[in-house]
Design a binder for these strands. Structure first.
Length: 996
DNA sequence: ATTACAACCTTTTTT
DNA sequence: AGGTTGTAAT
């Protein structure tokens, strides 16, 4: 068992999983197999004799918890994973509070106040007191203080403080807490704080706990750190996994410093770093590393590419946010079309700093018929119809919940307006009771109109009826309560009236059904309701259930971040994903766009921690496997002019980005993508005329973002984009952009043998788009578009003599010592490339093949064994397939799940290599604790790793010729096939089955 | 005076 | 999409 467990891991992962250390810190860079390692660690602990019910695994998101449980389940093969105490910090806290909360005076049936509730309460308090504070900011401040361990002494200081603002927040805080208490609500921070109280005062609750494992440790705040310590108090066996570079929740009081606190708290902590990246191309990693290294205060940590260098990331300037949307749509189409079926819509993600930035993008995707789904958009639970039902249930569960009462007393409209509600709340507050009690008990100071009074009593009647059902012996399932509400408010009629559009109405009805189904699931004792095992009995401690099935159901939903984007019909259809960067953490896609990379957006104007904004960009970039596009408009959606993000302007970045999308007709672009995705290189055959694209190149918009007129594109049916020079408005957005064929991803026809002719490429353009363009003639001409004088003016002269600091030399890329003359190989490359581009057409490699279509019509094929990329022994096939997060398209998943057979050892057949050579790791065995990771030469290591891959894997004649010294690396990996193919003839031929 | 509705403006990130 | 503001209807 243990051997099987470990055989799926690389060396450092194995060390981590099987470490006997009491306290273990795993620093895991992006794409390093973090989840895999953590799940294996859990399995390992179980195998070594720990009991599942005595292990706590805390994650940060519900999604992560779910995935973790599934993966542990798969690893174990029995049902023990069900017994783990596994969930988000918040949900684990709720479980403890439910069972033991009585010990610290928590009242039965307590509810959870979510973000929205907290905000409305604060808003009301602000209004009532005529404060000028911003509710959201205030909420964050209050939450921040609570997350730092409560109000305590700080409040006392504040009382004495003369600072008006502090005093104000203080007043709001006091009233806010009182309101929550009266309504028997705990907010998110309370859940953690109260649980800390509980475990501190009654450590017996966790006396059974044998091990505590924390995921995404860099996102924990001080309270969560305390919680971890308290949970682990009895055996002090702790494993944490995290990456300081991916700390993006500082705004929510996450403390990167917690890692240091850990070392202080447990001086014997062993730290192990996972450095190999199994996700991204070398070029993407190199660029990402450049970004994150701008933060000089960070713990330097290296990142080692295991994939080929691949195509340079793109940094694109566009005229406006609108054009940016249009451009993204075209680039997506270009990717999908020109790579054959290597890339589908499901492989593409658009990651945003802010959700609202999606507007223009959605418009254009919608117009072009590109299917997409929005993650982190309005959640399922935020839909009006769902909220209505849930808030009714909350009043039913807890009539003292004024918030919920106010939310739905006039939904649907019953003639109870804002004014009435407001005065009721105020009176109730004054009398220290709930509105409900107020209405039940006493004479009202508030004068109510007959209409309002009538409306309120109709509302209360519905609630009372439901509560009668609740106290009845039978018929008090959650679903039956829901049905009662749905009927009583005539929800269907209401929805039909409010949303007359049939489609809209139907989808809302679907949501109602969905929430009903959820309730039925919760009612069903048979359903495998994840994570609802009661806490294990602890000797000498009584559990006292504080929640009812209903309140538990509601609490769970409050904690559900899970945007139920379950579109049953769309499940099979690949879709472009649009998401915030935050919500994309832990996920990966072959192609990633990061639009809106302008100053004010990233870094965000409201953010006060620039380093965190930078990390956010880093997280976004490292989601990409093969292609990465960063872009910014010169005019944002508010029509204000912008400057590119400061993170992207340093000179040292120039080499790492291209200015526009790659030329897919260049011979290594598509094969490299295939290699990174571990797919067969598609056979691409079509005539240019048939291309459902206005251009094969990313040349529809000028690279500097100006609106200059461009030569009209001769492409039938194309009418939208040839009109540069017109004012922005006049782009023909409302006309159909593309003809019918484009509604579907293009599929290659196998009857026509064809080549792609670069329609508008000049030699210079082609040069500029070389996947790894390191400053040859093409880029020297008009290197980059930043309005950074220094760069534009000096570069062309400076480049050949002296490099700006931190700018890796060409030599570095090719693995030569830094001090060798850099421009020598450059000229050679240039010459070779020019020779190359004099050929009229460039063929993409043709490979015979295409096994039977895989399940459910997915036209893509996994790599058949005989042409599989070579994998060096250290890189385990399953790991390279590992994926974190499970929400990319099913098509993607399917492809990745496919068994991968390492090739037999006849190297000469392998064509598109991936993966870097094994890296010797001297001294790794005698690891000492605690150890701050990494020598600081990580820049070099990534660059040279990338360089080796380049020379090994990017298989063009010109590059091969440009590097006389290359063979010293190359021989190792069986270049025989290439040697033969290149044969010295000078005319490059794509590899094909004919060669076999 | 209160409520309902249409038109406009503004959007950080989330358990 | 939410919130705010202005205006018509009750």
């Amino acid at each position: 068992m243990s051997t099987t467990l470990l055989s799926n891991l690389n060396e450092s992962q194995r060390d981590a999983v099987s470490s006997p250390a009491q306290q273990l810190a795993i620093l895991a860079g992006p794409g390093s197999g973090k989840t895999h390692t953590l799940t294996s660690r859990v399995a390992w602990l179980l195998a070594s004799g720990l009991q599942a019910q005595n292990i706590i695994v805390a994650t940060f998101t519900k999604k992560a918890a779910k995935e973790m449980q599934e993966r542990i389940g798969k690893l174990l093969g029995d049902d023990r994973e069900q017994k783990l105490i596994l969930g988000t910090f918040h949900s684990i806290s709720v479980r403890y509070l439910r069972s033991y909360g009585y010990l610290i005076g928590i009242k039965k049936g307590f509810g959870v106040a979510d973000q929205h509730d907290s905000e409305t309460i604060i808003k009301r308090i602000i209004k009532k007191n005529n404060f000028m504070a911003d509710p959201k900011a205030t909420k964050n401040k209050i939450s921040g203080r609570k997350a730092k361990g409560g109000w305590g002494e700080k409040m006392e200081k504040a009382m004495k403080s003369n600072n008006k603002e502090v005093q104000q927040i203080d007043a709001i805080y006091t009233e806010y807490e009182a309101t929550l208490k009266r309504a028997n609500l705990l907010d998110f921070d309370d859940l953690l704080l109260r649980c800390v109280d509980l475990l501190r005062d009654h450590p017996q609750c966790v006396s059974n706990i044998e091990a505590v494992l924390i995921d995404e440790f860099q996102d924990t705040n001080l309270v969560q750190f305390d919680l971890m310590r308290l949970m682990a108090a009895s055996r002090k066996k702790v494993t944490i996994v995290g990456d300081p570079d991916q700390s993006i929740y500082g705004f929510r009081s996450a403390e990167v410093k917690n890692y240091l606190s850990l070392l202080r708290q447990y001086p014997d902590t062993i730290t192990i770093s996972l450095e190999e990246n199994y996700r991204s191309s070398g070029a993407i990693l190199a660029a990402s590393l450049k970004i994150i290294q701008q933060d000089t205060s960070r713990i330097n940590k290296s990142l080692l590419a295991t994939h080929t260098v691949g195509t340079r990331p793109v940094l694109r300037t566009l005229e406006s946010a609108e054009v940016e949307g249009d451009w993204i749509m075209h680039e997506i189409r270009r990717c999908v079309t020109l790579t054959g079926d290597l890339i589908t819509y499901g492989d593409v993600a658009i990651l945003l700093r802010s959700a609202y930035l999606s507007r223009h993008i959605e418009t254009y995707l919608g117009k072009a018929g590109v299917p997409y789904r929005m993650v982190g958009g309005r959640a399922f639970y935020d839909r009006v119809e769902v909220r209505l039902i849930l808030y009714y249930l909350r009043v039913i569960s807890n009539p003292a919940d004024n918030n919920a009462f106010a939310e739905v007393v006039n939904l649907p409209k019953r003639g109870v307006g804002d004014v009435t509600v407001k005065s009721l709340i105020e009176e109730a507050d004054q009398k220290r009771m709930s509105i409900w009690e107020l209405m039940e008990n006493g004479p009202l100071a508030t004068g109510l109109s007959a209409k309002a009074r009538n409306g309120i009593s109709r509302f209360m009647k519905i609630i009372k009826d439901a509560r009668k059902m609740l106290s009845d012996e039978e018929g008090h399932t959650i679903a039956s309560l829901m049905k009662h509400v749905i009927e009583a408010v005539e929800l269907e009629d209401y929805l039909k009236k409010t949303y007359p559009e049939e489609e809209d109405y139907q989808s809302r009805l679907e949501n109602v059904k969905e929430i009903l189904a959820l309730a039925e699931e919760a009612d069903d004792p048979e359903s495998p309701d994840y994570n609802d095992e009661p806490l294990p009995e602890v000797d000498g401690l009584e559990q006292n259930e504080l929640s009812t099935p209903l309140s538990n159901f509601l609490a769970k939903i409050s904690l559900a971040t899970d945007k139920r984007a379950k579109d049953a019909e769309g499940e099979d259809k690949p879709r472009v994903t649009i998401s915030t960067i935050h919500a994309a953490k832990g996920l990966e896609w072959p192609v990633v766009f990061i639009p809106g990379a302008y100053d004010g957006s990233i870094p965000n104007g409201r953010a006060d921690d620039t380093d965190e904004e930078r990390r956010l960009l880093y997280v976004g970039m490292t989601r990409a496997k093969a292609l990465l596009y960063v872009s910014y408009p010169l005019i944002d959606s508010r029509r204000e002019s912008t400057r590119p993000s400061n993170f992207l302007t340093p000179t040292s970045l120039l080499l790492h980005f291209g200015q526009k999308g790659p030329s897919f007709s260049k011979q290594n672009v598509v094969p490299d993508i295939a290699a990174i995705l571990r797919l067969e290189v598609p056979k691409i055959t079509f005539t240019p005329d048939e291309l459902p694209l206005p251009s094969q190149e990313d040349d529809l918009w000028p690279e500097d973002g100006t609106a200059k007129a461009r030569p009209p594109k001769t492409w039938d049916q194309w009418d939208g984009t040839a009109q540069y020079g017109e004012p922005r408005k006049s782009l023909a957005h409302d006309r159909p952009l593309i003809d019918k064929r484009n509604m579907e991803p293009w599929k290659p026809s196998y009857t026509t043998t064809m080549t792609i002719t670069p329609a508008f490429s000049t030699a210079a353009a082609v040069l500029r788009e070389q996947p790894v363009n390191l400053g040859g003639a093409g880029s020297a001409k008009r290197p980059y578009t930043f309005d950074d004088d220094e760069v534009v003016d000096k570069k062309s002269t400076k480049r050949s003599t002296k490099r700006p600091d931190g700018q890796p030399s060409l030599a570095a890329y090719f693995g030569k010592p830094q001090n060798s003359k850099a421009n020598e190989p450059a000229t050679t490359i240039t010459a070779a490339r020019q020779t190359h581009t004099t050929q009229p057409s460039v063929s993409l490699p043709r490979l015979n093949h295409r096994a039977t279509l895989s399940q459910r019509g997915n036209p893509r094929t996994a790599i058949p064994a005989q042409i599989a990329p070579y994998v060096p022994p250290t890189i385990c096939p399953t790991l390279s397939r590992h994926r974190i997060g499970g929400t990319t398209s099913t098509a993607t998943n399917r492809r990745n799940i496919r068994a991968f057979t390492p090739p037999e050892s006849n190297g000469s057949k392998y064509i598109f290599l991936s993966s870097s050579p094994p890296r010797p790791e001297p001294g790794r065995k005698e690891r000492e604790a605690p150890r701050l990771p990494m020598p600081s030469n990580s820049i070099n290591s990534i660059v040279t790793t990338a360089a080796r891959s380049a020379s090994l894997h990017t298989t063009t004649e010109d590059r091969a010729r440009a590097q006389p010294g290359r063979k010293s690396y190359g021989a190792r990996m069986g270049m025989g096939g290439w040697e033969k193919r290149m044969g010295g003839s000078g005319s490059w031929k794509p590899p094909s089955m004919a060669d076999r």
